[in-house]
Design a protein around this nucleic acid. Structure first.
Lengths: 214, 214, 214, 214
DNA sequence: GATGAATGAGGCTTCATTCAT
DNA sequence: AATGAATGAAGCCTCATTCAT
């Protein structure tokens, strides 16, 4: 039989990955069986194993794609002229537009990274990229005099990471997560941290009681 | 072997729970087998099943204990006169003194809560308790004029939760987590959020570069 | 500790046997656990094993008692002057007075006899005793001229056994077993077989439609 | 291995059912393990579970097949012109030609029917079909004047059932079952019950001693 | 390349039996 | 003698993976 065209191959792979993501999100990596995924993708086990050599490989594939996507979006942040606005739209995407189960996927990948070296490597590489991006960004902002010049860039980056992680966790984990209240409050915190209202003063008024009424 | 004294029974239960926590932390709820736990606890399957009627029950037991412990420690926070100091020591406990794998347990429980109703209930009840505690605490601090009177208590609570979650996640997930840098930085953020150095001004100097050198 | 008086011992044994019979009747030999029996008898496993060395032994004990009881009742039959009346009262006992689950016990023992040599021996010995009793009885009745002198005693015995077995089976197995209709009909069959109304003519009229109305 | 043809599927199912019947007959439903059956059928557990979703389902499958076969053979009886001859050949089949262990299967199913609702339903449906067939048959014979017109059809049916059950039981249970003596004797009893030699007078001489010598 | 039936190791759990107290 | 917690072999079933077609 003639080899499938590379495009078809790639499409098939993505299709399987989509199905797997669905199933994994629905029931978690370990509760989800290969049969579930085959059914979801309308593909036979034999076919699936042509594209992914094992369940681990499938998980790694999911992690790869998920993290690559995140890295791509995150990369824009550092290049952005209006950082706060960029953060805001990142937040909109991950914590409002995308369904919660996608964030649960993120969390699940992070946990898997802890025990599965292959996933660990993928996860850590993106994490380190984010750290480095933050640091570069703050260094730049500092050099440009746009944030408090006394700030410690490394520490600031760590705090940003913690806040980002916390948001992912909340969004993934708390069915009552209230984006409308939490995200603006977090944004204001960030502005405070940076020491100035920055680029979007009109969008981020001080965090005071009368304005935060939901 | 006449009836075990209730104390012994409880001790045995705790012993098994300890072993299970070890195993679960090492390999995750679903990669860890009952036999692993039996071996870790030096107990036969039959004996284990005297104390826990199923693997689910064991997971629920772990969740229960872990969360109850957290709730107890957290409860002290609200009663504490020196909130910042109390936060600091909570952080010291969870992010420095305790081994990382305990925090991984926390994370694993949170993920499990998403899929397993029994664990979900345990998890959510503690989460709600924390939310309520934060709100009560900030309300009190506000009434006492110890924090910025313009702050929105609800939003502030949400931000605190996000920061707490993020710290748990980082600690659990990042083998290079740098407590020495991250925790002070987070504490300073918190103080900033509250609008004043509060009770422990000497312990939380401004977050400036020269002090944060690693 | 001083040895229990033989009487107490025997009583304890019977008590356990009673409990076991209950459980076995309720759920069958193999679905019933030793714990079930312990609970039913309010006895600890350790104590039970003092009286019965294994589950097999307990089953054998049940079989022994059940069959011995049957043999005793059956023995009366052969000695009885009024055979038909004796049969009638035996039928009354086993198929009306005793609950169906006791007959299910009988059946279960018969099946067990097929695979368990110890039970097999018990079962077969009673069965052979019954065969021999029937043969002796019919021989006697024949000699006394009370039944058709042309009858073949061996064949007649076989038929009787088949009918007896069938009744046990029906009673044990059919929740809608209608004793009021079946037993009289069977009794009339038996009289027909024996070739004469025998001793109780008034009690066993011919089997005709108008009389058999329930 | 593309989809098996329905025929092959059915054959595979039957093959497994055969193996299971062997094992069950040999050691009883509850002593027989799924592994035993797999070995007997030369099939892996996984394959077995493609065809039967549980041990219960396998038992139900056995019951279904066994009873359906019986019902089919029994159905012929009612249609038969020569009832006695039909009975005779049914008896030949079940109590002579077929090995005893098949009848033990019958018995085991009847016992299981008592505890297992699914099997109970199968068993009872066939039993009721037999009752109804007997009643219809006797009604017809009566209407045609071929049996004693005074007989009570219901009672007669009950007696027939009892005799049939008894024969199954004996055949299943008694390793010394003497078909050569018992079956003719039972047949003669039946003829007597029906009130006339009926269709096959030459085949069923009176039950007298000189003929029944073993 | 695809199919899907088949494999078989291994997971969770039960339960007859033992034995320290 | 009695207790009941403990043992551990074994049972039922699942599921990642393979392979004949």
């Amino acid at each position: 039989m003639p080899k499938l065209k590379p495009d078809t191959q790639r499409a098939r792979r993505e299709h399987i990955l989509d199905a797997a993501e669905h199933c994994f999100a629905r029931s978690g990596f370990h509760r989800c069986t290969m049969q579930d995924i085959c059914k979801e993708a309308s593909v036979s086990p034999g076919a699936l194993y042509v594209y992914f050599s094992s369940k681990e490989a499938l998980i790694a594939g999911i992690a790869e794609r998920n993290r690559a996507d995140f890295a791509a979006r995150f990369a824009d942040l550092a290049d952005s002229g209006d950082v706060v606005q960029a953060l805001r739209s990142l937040a909109q995407h991950y914590f409002v537009d995308e369904p919660a189960h996608k964030q649960l996927m993120f969390v699940e990948i992070g946990v898997e990274a802890t025990r599965n070296p292959q996933v660990g490597e993928i996860y850590r590489s993106v994490d380190e990229f984010c750290s480095a991006s933050f640091e570069a960004l703050f260094e730049r902002l500092k050099a440009e005099g746009r944030i408090n010049p006394e700030l410690d860039v490394l520490s600031l980056s760590r705090v940003f990471e913690v806040i980002g992680d916390g948001l992912f966790w909340r969004r993934a984990t708390d069915p009552n997560f209230d984006a409308a209240r939490t995200i603006p409050a977090v944004m204001r915190t960030i502005e405070t941290l940076l020491g100035a209202p920055l680029q979007s003063p009109q969008a981020a008024p001080r965090m005071v009681a009368k304005e935060a009424r939901q």
